[in-house]
Design a protein around this nucleic acid. Sequence first.
DNA 1: TATCTTTCGTACTAGGTGGTATATTAACCA
DNA 2: TGGTTAATATACCACCTAGTACGAAAGATA
Lengths: 209, 209
Amino acid sequence: MSELKRRGRPKQFDREHTLAIATRLYWAEGLEGMSINQICESADVSKPSLYREFGNEDGLLTAVFHYYTETVTKPFLQLFDVDVPFEKLIPQLVHAIHTKHDNSEIPTGCLAIKMRNCAPKLSPELLSRIDAFTLELQQAFETWFTFNQTKLPSTITPNFAAKYLDGQLSATMALVCKGVSIDDACQVLVTGLSVLNLPGTKVATTPTN
Amino acid sequence: MSELKRRGRPKQFDREHTLAIATRLYWAEGLEGMSINQICESADVSKPSLYREFGNEDGLLTAVFHYYTETVTKPFLQLFDVDVPFEKLIPQLVHAIHTKHDNSEIPTGCLAIKMRNCAPKLSPELLSRIDAFTLELQQAFETWFTFNQTKLPSTITPNFAAKYLDGQLSATMALVCKGVSIDDACQVLVTGLSVLNLPGTKVATTPTN
DNA sequence: TATCTTTCGTACTAGGTGGTATATTAACCA
DNA sequence: TGGTTAATATACCACCTAGTACGAAAGATA
């Protein structure tokens, strides 16, 4: 146990609570739409406390990004475990999107993408961390397709399929952000993925030549 | 002609030039990444001159949005004229994307979407203008599919096809913004649109049930 | 009790933001 | 020439931003 008595005034600052609120705010309002002052006010912490914990704004953003990937993206990535069978991926994706947007107040879009769009505000270190993570995600897709390659159309490589899936997910989120209903957005996702020959889609096309 | 002599000091302010520079800057750097001061400096105009012309920041943004739709989006929309035959749409889209990103310094992404993402900064009037325009675009897609409905798969309505196309274009732009090559992004677009049975695509799928 | 150590928050800084008051300038007209 | 009109830019405003100096507070140690 780390039950040895610490000297000095006991710490009251709740890092986890602050990170949760900051992440939610940045995610919902956008990086540039949210200031340190507003975050301090919402999380009910003093500004020096926040700076003591995270150093500066970039430190806070780095911690927020880490918190986001751990609590949001990584659970999503588990859907692409190579053990997940071919025929269960799309229903799982649709289910994940539905539960994520239906019964809670999760903001729309991807925080990592929103952060990437504010590149000039970010340090090179954080920027490369974001890029590394998106690459990691991309490669998880590719790995999944590699292990499930047998049923891919012959003209489609796992690498392209990964990019294509990435694009379809972007499309779905973009539509949701635009106000399209979750059902319609999921239908777009399912339709788009149907070209990869994944089961669970209704749309069928015929060869063009 | 409006050649009647105006009284007072002749105007030097070049509205068109300023709008062109402001649009480019907002488009490239994002709404929140660009300040009035920076725009004035880049356009080499004084701040009062800019305020005299546009009233306030929201007025400038409104003018920028109009300039953007007129010079960028509407030419793109012409590709969806109902007279454009079915089999020429995709090559035109790909060609448009290529020429737009290859030989010039056009920023990536869509300014209208970037503006929409900064909703809290925008006046309700401008916000509804943006929404109206995106709706108009969506309906142009739908009209095109209505006039070219015959070859659409029976399970796909023109309304859904319009949303789907919107999503595929978002996907393409998202990939380009992420650093994916134009060729790969266009290939994603072509592949995605293949489910609509449009000619010009190589990928063919077989019915799943 | 007094000292030491650590965390706390008030109150401040410098700089940037959107926006403007005001004096000057430059053309017309009489 | 002098008066009228309108466009110009300097120099300013109040406010907000990220970031911090510093003294008070709260516990352990002696």
